[in-house]
Design a protein around this nucleic acid. Structure first.
Length: 570
DNA sequence: GCCGTTTTCGGCCCGACTGTTTTCAGTCG
């Protein structure tokens, strides 16, 4: 799939055009095209071969030509041309907070700033501050932005974001008391994205000034970067930025809608509003006579002629069209999940015994679970050989006798070996209730072929963390996800959403592609200790972002139906 | 550069905040 490669070039072309002062709408057209390509579930090469490029929204004649250029020649000539007469490190420069394209152009033209080091130098020697429109404060902000990108990445994992959100909301709830009537996270955290860019919290209050002031006085605030009538921004000790917006009740719904985004979703909604003679902003929805709604988020959608849209869908990936036609998916929820089917114990590298883990999971309200400890090749994780696996199986069988309202399945997370075979022979797998197969080593060695070989084994129920990516640390291995999805559709093998915050693998877009092909998904936590179990919420959020319904997720099945499915597939 | 049941030209989402300015440009979301 070259979708992402082309999207990245379009994004860079947008950056360059913006730097060069091109028409902002033209710049926007490139950015939109990049986003559409990123979100596309189909392979751009297939669309090209079928002469369907023109059907992609936001891709007109000119961009079709550029896509064709890339597919045929592996380069886009207009892009190569644009690379002339720009700073060497333009893209790094533009990633600096408070240093945008206009300022970059000014610094390049007047001072020859080409690199981050050049910028540092003209800040230090006082040249930058002398430029028109510059001043001490502006330069100071740019300097701090420059320091910031040296030490931290700008995106926060959903797990960290959620923990910060919980802390802020609980602190404010305690201190502000009844001054705050509603409070919630907005932005990409509310949309359940795997990483979050800035944390945005909305508080409904009749006294915004007091609440905002309180917010800036939180004990872990190290810097206040903004404080107006409606919004305050702070940097916390852990270097993360949190914004709080104080909203009166009459516009809380409109503000929640507005600040939840995504930007692309909102732009499309505004276009629809405009076509209908309406206007939407963070204060409400208006016709020519004045405000007609905005207290509740539903108002906005209702007055545009559509049902309320779940936040996880708001990416302009077809959800607005679906809403207008009243065919939105009924997304799976955390409550629908009946089992956690990828759990480790002290038999391999887990922290709790089989009995302790089972009891903890039962107390969370699940109907059943599966132990899937590592197999012997995962020696670093104390993987089980056949004897220890059978020993664990016996212990699980005995433990099950304690429960009438809960079932423990005996399983394994067997390694997929470099030759595509599994760590246990079929006659052992056959004894188990549930089998996950995962790649943990030799990432370079034909991951696609090995995964497909594993799926063709009738005892393999699920492929664990299929792409092997670690969000903060490594790209997934070179897996041809579309081939894997196609084979999974044939074999009936489910693909995992591993809910661990740094995996979230499959990703939301992969989930969408899989379920479009009729492939089933299994959402697991891969917990090694009790604290990991709550990460199920991130996996469910990822599934929801992939438009998954209950019927797409095998661990929403009640135990008897789940067992019947297992039987059919073997 | 894209797009079209008012348009193949003339629109394109909208506002807060900041810092610079003396009415506005740049950045951000």
């Amino acid at each position: 799939m070259k979708n992402q490669e082309i999207a990245e070039i379009f994004t860079r072309m947008a950056d360059i055009l913006e730097f060069k002062g091109e028409n902002a709408f033209k710049v926007n057209a490139y950015r939109k095209a990049a986003r559409v390509l990123t979100d596309l579930t189909a392979d751009i090469e297939d669309l090209y071969n079928n002469k369907q490029l023109g059907e992609i929204p936001g891709i007109g004649q000119a961009l079709q030509g550029k896509i064709e250029d890339y597919l045929l020649h592996n380069r886009i000539s207009q892009y190569d041309a644009l690379l002339n007469d720009i700073p060497k490190e333009l893209f790094s420069l533009l990633s600096i907070p408070n240093f945008g394209p206009r300022t970059a152009a000014l610094a390049y033209q007047k001072l020859g700033v080409q690199t981050l080091a050049d910028l540092e130098k003209v800040i230090q020697n006082g040249d930058l501050v002398k430029l028109p429109g510059m001043g001490e404060k502006k330069v100071d902000k740019i300097h701090r932005g420059l320091e910031l990108i040296k030490v931290s990445q700008t995106r926060i994992s959903i797990a960290v974001a959620q923990s910060i959100i919980d802390q802020v909301i609980s602190w404010l709830g305690e201190k502000a008391g009844t001054q705050i009537t509603r409070i919630t996270a907005a932005g990409s955290a509310r949309r359940g994205k795997e990483t979050v860019h800035g944390i945005d919290i909305l508080a409904e209050t009749p006294d915004g000034a007091a609440v905002l002031q309180l917010f800036t006085q939180m004990p872990n605030v190290t810097e206040i970067t903004g404080a107006g009538d409606t919004k305050a921004s702070v940097i916390l000790e852990n270097r993360y930025q949190v914004d709080l917006r104080a909203i009166p009740a009459a516009s809380y719904g409109a503000a929640l809608q507005y600040f939840t985004g995504s930007q692309a979703h909102n732009i499309k909604l505004r276009g629809i509003a405009r076509d209908r003679g309406l206007k939407i902003n963070e204060y409400g929805i208006f016709n020519e006579h004045g405000k007609i709604g905005g207290e509740q988020e539903e108002d906005i959608y209702r007055l545009l002629g559509m049902p309320w849209i779940e936040p996880e869908l708001r990416e302009d990936r077809g959800e607005i069209e679906a809403a207008l036609q009243n065919r939105l998916p009924h997304l799976v929820t955390l409550d629908d999940i009946k089992a956690d089917l990828h759990i480790h114990s002290t038999y391999s590298d887990g922290q709790l015994s089989v009995a302790e883990m089972a009891e903890t999971i039962r107390s969370l309200g699940y109907q059943y679970m599966a132990f899937c400890d590592h197999s012997r090749s995962a020696f670093y994780a104390n993987g089980l050989d056949e004897n220890r696996l059978l020993q664990q199986l016996e212990e699980i069988r005995r433990l099950n006798e304690r429960y009438s309202d809960f079932a423990i399945l005996a399983g394994t997370e067997t390694d997929i070996l470099p030759d595509g075979s599994l760590d246990f022979p079929d006659h052992i797998l056959k004894k188990l209730d549930f089998v996950i197969a995962s790649i943990h080593s030799a990432f370079e060695t034909d991951p696609t072929g090995r995964t497909i070989a594993a799926m063709k084994n009738p005892y393999v129920d699920v492929i664990g963390h299929p792409t092997g990516r670690l969000i903060s640390r490594r790209e997934g291995f070179a897996l041809d996800i579309d081939r894997v999805i196609a084979v999974a559709a044939e074999t009936g093998t489910a693909l995992e959403i591993n809910s661990y915050w740094d995996r979230l693998d499959l990703s939301d877009l992969h989930v969408k592609r899989a379920i479009e092909q009729g492939v089933k998904i299994c959402i697991n936590t891969d917990s090694h200790q009790a604290a990991h179990l709550t990460m199920m919420e991130f996996g469910v959020a990822t599934a929801r972002r992939g438009w998954a319904e209950c019927k797409d997720i095998i661990n929403t099945l009640p135990l008897e139906q789940f067992r019947a499915r297992q039987k059919r597939n073997r």
